[in-house]
Design a protein around this nucleic acid. Structure first.
Length: 810
RNA sequence: GCCCGGGUGGCGAAAUCGGCAGACGCAACGGACUUAAAAUCCGUAUUCCGGCAACGGGAGUGCGGGUUCAAGUCCCGCCCCGGGCACCA
C-alpha cells in the first residue's frame, strides 16, 4: 500500500462519526458473565470548557477502561456533572442569565469535547446533579439523616465568607481564609444552621483508614488522619468559685499538679457572667481573631478575678481568658501547666503566672526554676501527691480513672473533626427539605412530596441571605403536619453533598423510586479504581466515606468504604499555578485537538511525566508526540500488504515487539508509568524504521498488529484506523489484549561490561544466561582485560550473569 | 514547629531487586532531499582535559560522611524546593 500522510482531522472525524452512531459502544453490561470493573474519574464542574488538566485525568481513566475491556472485564466507566455551585450564580449576575441555562449549555459544550476525545463513557448513566431527578435524593437522604438524628439544627458560630455571601464548612477554610478567595479572611458569625453529624463516625472514619492502606496513596491517608485529629486525654471539672464547675480537656492529666491557672476561650460561656469591661475585652479578642490572616498570633489574655479549684490537690488557681484557647476544640477551657507545655509557658511567662515543674526526666532531676523552655516530654511524675514516682503513662491512665471514680472527670477522646455544616445562603443548590411551622416547629417535607423543586426564575443578588427567601411562591407552604400556613427553609445544601454519593447513582441513574436499587450497588461496588486530583484528599473523599457509612447504617448498602483503590494524579501547572478557569491559565482542550488531534493531546498528557507527578504544561513538547503518531501511521500504511523483505530482521523486531508488549502490560498492571510505556513504543518505532527493508511480510503484519493493540488504550483513533487498514472489522478495543510470548521476548545476546576496580575496561557480547564461571573465564580471556590486569594481583572476581564482571585487584 | 513527597544534562524525564547514569522526547547543531522553505529521513549531543582523528584520561545524580567489589538507589547528619497540618491543650 502506498504511504499516506497522517491527517488527524480526517481520521478522527471518520471514526468519531462512526462510533457516535453506536449508542451501545461503551455500554456496561447489566447481566454479564464477565468479572466487573468499575473505573471512575472525578466528575467535573461544568465551567464551560475542558482544559488540559481535565484531559490528563480522563486520559488515565480512559486508557485503563479500554485496557480492562480488552482484558475481558465488564467495565463500568461513567461520567457526570457536578452542576450546582457558586460560579453559575456569579455568571448569572454577570450575564443576566439563569444559572440553569448557563450550566446546561456548558454541559453541552463540554460533552462535545468529551466525545471528540473519544473518552469511552457510558452516557446512558449520565448524572447531572442540578436536576430534580438527582437532587430529590439529596433531600431524601436528608430525611433519613433527620430520622437517625444525623442531621440537626443549631445556633453556632460559623465560617462566613463575605464575597461568597455564604457560610463555609470547616473543610472549606484554608489558612483562615475562604477556599475560593485566598485573601478574604473568614468571619465567625452566629447563625442557625443545619449540620450533619460527621463526628458520629470520627472513630470509624479513622480506623477504616487502615483498611485503605496500600490501595490509597499514603499522602491522602495521612492527610485524613491529621484532619480527623484524634487526641486521647481526660476531661476534668474545676469548680469555679461562685459559678459551678468548668470542664477542661487535657492530654496530660499527669501534669495536673503543675497547673497554675485555668484559661478559657473568649467565647466561653463563663465570659457572659463577667463584668461589662471583661466582656468587652473578650469581644475585642474575638473580633481581632476574625480579622486576622494566617501567621503567628501574639498571645494575649486577662485575669477574670475568678478562682478555680483543682480537684486533685484542692488548690485555688486564677481563671484567665486567653486568645489562644479555641472554643471549637475540646471544651474551650484548659488548665495551664507552664512547666510542661510550650504555649502555656509562653503565656504564663508573659503574665508572671507561677511555673511549677512536676515531671522529672527518667534519667534526670526535676527541672530547676527559672525555666528557659517548657518540657513536654514524658517522664516520672513528682510533687503530685499519691502519684509521685509513677511514669507519666501510668499516671495519665490512673488519674483519669480516679477522676471518673470521684465524679469530677473521665478519660476522654477529642477530635479535630467537626460536624459538617451544610446550610448555604445561596440559590443554586439543593433546597433543604424542611418547613418551619409556628406550632409544629421544624417539619421535614414527607418523602412523597419530594422533590422540593428549586424555582427557575429567581433574582440573584449575592447579598447575605438566600435569594429563595425573596420568592413567596417558594417560601409560603402549608405545614405537612397541621396544614397551617408556614415557611419553607430557604437555605440550600453545600454542593459537596451532591458529590458525596453520585457514584452510586451511576449504577442506577434512572431509578425514580429510590436513589438506586441495592442489588445493582452490590454488583458494582466498591469502585475498583477512582482517579482524581489530590486537592480532593480531604473534602470530597472524607464526605464520601461518611456518606457511605451513613447509607449503610440507614440500611441502603452493606459496604463500609466506597473506593477500593484511589489514584491521585498530579496537577497540570501553567505559569506557576494549577490550571483552572478561575486562575485564567487554561489551555483549552479543543485548541490542542484542533492543531494536533485528540490522540496527540491524550498521548502527550500521559507522556510528559508519570501520572502522579505535577507537570508544567509547555506547548513545545506536543510536537514530538505528534511526529511519533505520524511516523507510526506512515510506516503502517506503506508496509501493510507489501511483499516485504528477506526476513533477516524478523526475529529482532518481533523480539522488540514482545518486549514492549510485556512492558506495557506490566505498566498497566502495576505502577501506571505510561510515560515509559509510550517511550517503549517510540523505541519500537525507531527499530522498525531501522530494520524496515529486512522484515518479511508475515512478520511485518504481526508486528503492526501488536502495535495497534499497544496504541489502542492511548490513541484510540489512530489505533482503530490502522486496525481497519489491516483489513479488520469492529472496534479494536473490543478485541482481546494479546499475551506476550516470553520466549519471543527473551534477548539472545547481552553485552557485558568488565570492570577492573569499578572502572570499565572492556566489553564483550555473550549469549544470555551464561553462568558465573563461564562469564569470568570469558572476561579473563579478553585482550583488553589482560592488558589491564598486567602486573596486578587479583583479589576477587565478581561475575553477575547478564549484568557485569568486576575484577578487584591490588 | 510536626508529618509526607521531591532534588539526575539547556528542558520534560529514564534507570522497578544495590550492577554500564542520562532510555524516550523537546530544544540545539550537522547532513540528505528541495530552486527554496516546510515536512520528512539520517546523524551528533553530560561535562572537563589531551589529540587532526580513531581514541585515551578525569569528574559527575543537592551538600558532608558511612556501608559495599559496586551507591542516583541502603545508613547517618545537613541544605534547598513542593504539599499537608499547625496556639488542637
Amino acid at each position: 500500500m502506498p504511504e499516506k500522510t497522517y491527517d488527524h482531522n480526517q481520521i478522527e472525524l471518520k471514526w468519531h462519526d462512526q462510533w457516535g452512531s453506536d449508542p451501545d459502544l461503551y455500554k456496561a453490561e447489566e447481566n454479564s458473565s464477565r468479572p466487573k470493573y468499575y473505573v471512575l474519574e472525578m466528575l467535573p464542574y461544568p465551567s464551560g470548557a475542558l482544559h488540559i488538566g481535565h484531559i490528563r485525568n480522563y486520559s488515565i481513566g480512559d486508557a485503563l477502561a479500554r485496557y480492562m475491556w480488552m482484558r475481558g472485564y465488564n467495565v463500568l466507566h461513567p461520567m457526570g456533572w457536578d452542576a450546582f455551585g457558586l460560579p453559575a450564580e456569579n455568571a448569572a449576575i454577570k450575564n443576566n442569565r439563569p444559572p440553569r441555562d448557563w450550566t446546561l449549555s456548558n454541559v453541552e459544550k463540554m460533552k462535545k469535547t468529551h466525545s471528540r476525545f473519544a473518552f469511552s463513557y457510558d452516557w446512558d448513566r449520565e448524572v447531572t446533579t442540578c436536576e430534580p431527578d438527582y437532587y430529590r435524593w439529596n433531600q431524601w437522604f436528608f430525611n433519613r439523616m433527620l430520622e437517625k438524628g444525623l442531621a440537626y439544627r443549631k445556633q453556632a458560630l460559623v465560617n462566613w465568607c463575605n464575597i461568597c455571601a455564604t457560610v463555609l464548612a470547616n473543610e472549606q477554610v484554608v489558612d483562615g481564609c475562604c477556599w475560593r478567595h485566598e485573601g478574604t479572611p473568614v468571619e465567625q458569625r452566629a447563625l442557625e444552621q443545619w449540620f450533619l453529624r460527621t463526628t458520629a463516625y470520627a472513630e470509624e472514619l479513622l480506623n477504616d483508614i487502615d483498611k485503605l492502606e496500600g490501595s490509597w496513596p499514603d499522602r491522602v491517608l495521612t492527610m485524613q488522619r491529621n484532619w480527623i485529629g484524634r487526641s486521647e486525654g481526660a476531661e476534668v471539672d474545676f469548680e469555679v468559685v461562685g459559678h459551678g464547675p468548668v470542664r477542661v480537656f487535657t492530654t496530660r492529666v499527669d501534669t495536673i499538679y503543675g497547673a497554675t491557672c485555668m484559661i478559657i476561650a473568649p467565647e466561653h460561656e463563663l465570659v457572659a457572667k463577667l463584668g461589662a469591661d471583661e466582656k468587652a475585652q473578650a469581644r475585642k479578642m474575638i473580633d481581632a481573631r476574625a480579622n486576622q490572616g494566617p501567621g503567628d498570633v501574639l498571645k494575649e489574655g486577662f485575669n477574670t478575678g475568678l478562682r478555680a479549684i483543682n480537684p486533685f490537690n484542692g488548690e485555688s488557681v486564677p481563671v484567665w481568658v486567653g486568645n489562644f484557647v479555641l472554643m471549637g476544640y475540646g471544651t474551650g477551657a484548659i488548665m495551664a501547666v507552664p512547666a510542661h507545655d510550650e504555649r502555656d509557658f509562653e503565656f504564663c511567662t508573659q503574665y508572671g503566672i507561677d511555673i511549677r515543674p512536676v515531671i522529672r526526666p527518667v534519667d534526670g532531676t526535676l527541672p530547676e526554676l527559672p525555666l528557659k523552655v517548657a518540657c513536654g516530654d514524658y517522664g516520672i511524675v513528682e510533687n503530685s501527691g499519691p502519684w509521685s514516682g509513677k511514669p507519666s503513662a501510668d499516671a495519665r491512665r490512673e488519674m483519669a480513672a480516679f477522676a471518673e471514680e470521684k465524679g469530677f472527670g473521665k478519660a476522654a477522646i477529642t477530635y479535630r473533626l467537626k460536624d459538617w455544616g451544610v446550610s448555604r445562603q445561596r440559590y443554586w443548590g439543593t433546597p433543604i427539605p424542611v418547613i418551619h411551622c409556628t406550632t409544629c416547629g421544624v417539619v421535614p417535607v414527607p418523602d412523597d412530596q419530594l422533590p422540593v423543586l428549586l424555582p427557575r426564575q429567581v433574582a440573584i443578588t449575592g447579598k447575605g441571605r438566600s435569594p429563595l427567601a425573596d420568592v413567596p411562591e417558594f417560601v409560603n407552604a402549608p405545614c405537612p403536619k397541621c396544614g397551617a400556613p408556614s415557611l419553607r427553609e430557604t437555605d440550600t445544601m453545600d454542593t459537596f453533598v451532591d458529590s458525596s454519593w453520585y457514584f452510586y447513582r451511576y449504577c442506577d441513574s434512572k431509578n425514580s423510586t429510590a436513589p438506586y436499587d441495592a442489588k445493582k450497588i452490590d454488583y458494582w461496588f466498591p469502585i475498583d479504581q477512582y482517579i482524581g486530583g489530590v486537592e480532593h484528599a480531604i473534602l470530597h473523599l472524607i464526605y464520601s466515606r461518611f456518606w457511605t457509612k451513613m447509607m449503610r447504617d440507614v440500611g441502603l448498602t452493606t459496604i463500609d468504604e466506597p473506593v477500593k483503590k484511589l489514584f491521585t494524579q498530579g496537577m497540570v501547572i501553567r505559569n506557576g499555578a494549577k490550571m483552572s478557569k478561575s486562575v485564567g491559565n487554561v489551555v483549552p482542550a479543543d485548541d490542542v485537538a484542533d492543531k494536533y488531534g485528540a490522540d496527540t493531546a491524550r498521548l502527550f498528557a500521559l507522556f510528559a511525566a508519570p501520572p502522579e507527578k505535577d507537570v508544567d504544561w509547555i506547548d513545545a513538547g506536543v510536537e514530538g508526540v505528534y511526529r511519533f503518531l505520524g511516523r507510526v501511521y506512515r510506516y503502517a500504511t506503506r508496509n501493510i500488504g507489501t511483499p516485504g523483505g528477506d526476513g533477516s530482521s524478523d526475529a529482532k523486531v518481533l523480539r522488540k515487539a514482545h518486549q514492549v508488549l510485556q512492558k506495557v502490560t506490566e505498566d498497566f498492571d502495576s505502577r501506571w508509568h505510561f510515560n515509559t510505556s509510550i517511550a517503549a513504543m517510540m523505541e519500537l518505532t525507531n527499530d522498525l524504521y531501522a530494520e524496515e527493508a529486512k522484515i518479511s511480510a508475515t512478520a511485518m503484519e504481526q508486528v503492526i498488529t501488536i502495535f495497534v493493540f499497544l496504541l489502542a488504550p492511548f490513541a484510540p483513533y489512530l489505533a482503530q484506523e490502522i486496525w481497519a487498514e489491516l483489513g479488520n472489522e469492529g472496534p479494536v478495543f473490543r478485541q482481546k489484549w494479546p499475551a506476550f510470548n516470553p520466549d519471543l521476548a527473551r534477548e539472545t545476546d547481552v553485552e557485558i561490561p568488565v570492570q577492573v576496580n569499578g572502572k570499565i575496561r572492556a566489553r564483550f557480547t555473550v549469549p544470555t544466561g551464561l553462568d558465573k564461571a563461564a562469564l569470568e573465564a570469558a572476561a579473563r580471556a579478553d585482550e583488553k582485560v589482560i592488558a589491564a590486569l598486567e602486573g596486578k594481583t587479583i583479589v576477587k572476581v565478581i561475575a553477575v550473569p547478564d549484568k557485569l564482571v568486576n575484577i578487584v585487584v591490588k
